[in-house]
Every structure is written in C-alpha cells, then in structure tokens.
C-alpha cells in the first residue's frame, strides 16, 4: 500500500513534468516556428490582413456583433453579458421546442424586416444562435439575403457587395469537407475599405 502510494506520487510528478510542461512547451515552440499567426489567434488589422497585437481589430476566427444596415450581420450570439463576448463562449442551450427560440428569431426578423428589402424565407442560420456564440461565419444564402440592404445603405451597386462577399466565401475544404461559409468580419472590413 505505502509502496504503491510512493510510486504513484513519483510517477505523477514525472508525468506532470513530461505531459504538463514539456509537451505543451514543445507544441508551442513548433507552432510558433511553423504557424506563428495562427497560433497567436489569427489576428487581423483594419484592412483584414494578418497582424500582431498592436494594430488588431479582431480575429479572423472570432465573430463580432454587427447591427448597422451597412454591415453584413452574423449569427445570433447567446454569450453574456453582451453578444460575441470572446471571454465567455457558449450557446443558448434552448431546447428544440422552447418558445424562446421563436422569440429570439422574431426579434431578429423584426430587425431584418425594418431593412430587409425583399420578401421570402430568411435563411435559418440568420435567426439562430451559434454553438460558441462566436461563430465567425454566415451561410452564403444568408449573406446573399443581406446584399440589397448593405448596397442601399452604402449607396453602392449590389454586385460590388457580392464581389466582396464572394472574395471572403470559402467552399467546402478540398471540395469535400464542412459547409460553404462567408467570413462576416472580413467582409465588413473589406466593405469599409472601399469607402
């Protein structure tokens, strides 16, 4: 019993150094050498280019809240106390029949309705909260839905907006994996850069 306890303490001390210190440090060193920008959080500057901390306006991987008509809007975010709180990720955890799902969707619809220039079904990802509360993407359908509104608010041609959206749309990775998606922050930075 005592002998096993002694071994357990010694082994855990060694494994803590190996797996809790040496391993994370080795991965950090490799990441910093090979993929420095990605390992530091994929920060971007005001024109959407990779950057270091000083000039950063956000991360290409972390969504931000957009509510003005001239911007592309992302998913709803259920983080507290404010949406897109990157220091406290999480989803709404509303059950599939919880009336709050319809209530939050209706609030979004009302906001869209004031500005949405065309009738028809609103894409579902535009009225639902993401799992992380930080989803950086919106579906191509949801982006297209917003094009006329953004174009009108900015006084530019809808096709100019579409060009920018297309530039920040990723297809399925290798043509196979995941879903097509539009990076909301990068589109908005590009829109601002046109001005």
């Amino acid at each position: 019993m005592v002998r096993e306890l002694n071994t357990a303490v010694r082994l855990l001390a060694i494994l803590t150094l190996l797996t809790g210190v040496a391993y994370p440090l080795a991965v950090t060193a490799a990441a910093r050498l090979l993929f420095p920008a990605a390992a530091e959080g994929s920060l971007v500057d005001a024109v959407g280019q990779p950057t270091t901390q000083a000039a950063a306006v956000g991360s290409a991987l972390i969504g931000q809240e957009f509510t003005a008509d001239r911007y592309l809007w992302g998913r709803l975010s259920a983080t507290a106390p404010q949406p897109y709180n990157a220091a406290a990720s999480g989803g709404s955890n509303l059950g599939p029949l919880n009336p709050a799902v319809a209530e939050t969707a209706q609030r979004r619809l009302a906001a869209l309705g004031a500005s949405a220039p065309r009738a028809g079904g609103v894409p579902v990802d535009l009225v639902t909260a993401s799992a992380s509360g930080l989803d950086p993407h919106i579906s191509p359908a949801a982006a297209e839905f917003q094009v006329p509104r953004i174009a009108a608010a900015r006084g530019i041609a809808p096709d100019a907006v579409r060009t920018i959206v297309a530039r920040h749309t990723s297809g399925r990775q290798f043509g196979l994996l995941g879903e097509p998606r539009v990076n909301v922050l990068l589109v908005n930075l590009a829109l601002d850069a046109v001005r």
Binding site: P96, V101, L109, V122, S139
Partner: peptide, 21 residues
C-alpha cells in the same frame, strides 16, 4: 415563422440553433 431551413447549395438548413455554420 416562414424561415427557410431547406438544405441547398447556399446553406446547410435544418436545425441550426446551437450549431456552427
């Protein structure tokens, strides 16, 4: 509410509450 949740080339559709695009 008339939301469009059909899967298609422009979106995954379905139940997107609590899912990532």
């Amino acid at each position: 509410l008339g939301i469009d949740a059909a899967a298609g080339p422009g979106q995954a559709g379905g139940t997107m509450e609590g899912k990532e695009v």
